[in-house]
Simulated assay, not measured.
Amino acid sequence: MIAVPPARLRRVSAEFLGSGSLTMVVVGSGIAAERLSPDDVGLQLLENAIATALGLFVLIAVLAPVSGAHFNPVVSFVDAALGYRSWRSILPYLPAQVLGCVGGAVLANAMFGLAPITVSSTARVSGPNLLSELVATAGLVLVIFSLARSGRAGWAPAAVGAYIGAAYFFTASTSFANPAITVGRMFSDTFAGIHPASAPGFIAAQLAGGLFGLLLVRLLFPRRLPSERR
């Protein structure tokens, strides 16, 4: 049996917990918003966005010292591409993020008395939505790594939460910007869900957005501070 280094186990566990908690916040607040404001979709989206922004702030603040608080395969890929972590070290993050997101959706369903596993019927693929996912993901990457490369990583919890909260409204797709959470949201037939047939298009757009965001970071912040190297 191969022993897992305790530090690596802690990092992967933090990614699982953070990804699951983030999806629980997104899906759970979406269900609550539907019930609290059944006749006002705009208010539902506002309630969902506020809860997500605040939840992201807390989760990043708590878990960033352990794993970097990626909760997102795109962020992990860019982290490795920019040399902050090795590719080998981030590979275990990916299944932890996806499984965490699925678990978070299941838990949110159960907390609100729904069947724990349901398949979303909400079709979301359209040209504007795919463009929105590309833009939202590129912007997220730029926000995170511009702060890291300019010595302002301490701003990340607030900046990422604020960005995603705003992106709920300035994108047509309501800014999933995360392949793992896209998979997780397939398992909740509620306000925050996405039909499985829509997920591949969203994920492709998110990966393209991650690449574009990486190019922007390299263009605007070509060097990282010595203190940020590890």
Score class of each variant (00 low, 15 high):
D40Q: 12
L54I: 14
V66G: 08
S67I: 09
S67N: 14
L59E: 02
V62M: 06
V62P: 03
A51D: 11
D40A: 12
S37G: 11
F57L: 15
E47Y: 11
S37T: 14
T52C: 12
I60R: 04
P73N: 08
A64L: 08
V41M: 10
S37L: 14
A61E: 13
A64S: 11
N48E: 11
F57H: 09
V62R: 08
A69P: 00
E47P: 00
P65T: 15
Q44F: 08
A69D: 02
A53M: 10
A49P: 01
Q44D: 06
A69I: 06
A49M: 08
V66P: 06
L43V: 15
N72Q: 04
N48A: 12
L59P: 07
Q44C: 04
A53F: 03
N48G: 12
L54G: 11
A64C: 03
A61V: 07
D40E: 14
A69V: 02
L54V: 13
A64R: 12
P38S: 14
N48L: 14
L43D: 07
T52M: 14
L63P: 12
N48M: 12
I60A: 06
L45R: 01
A49K: 02
V58S: 02
F71Q: 00
L63D: 09
L56G: 07
L59C: 13
S37Y: 13
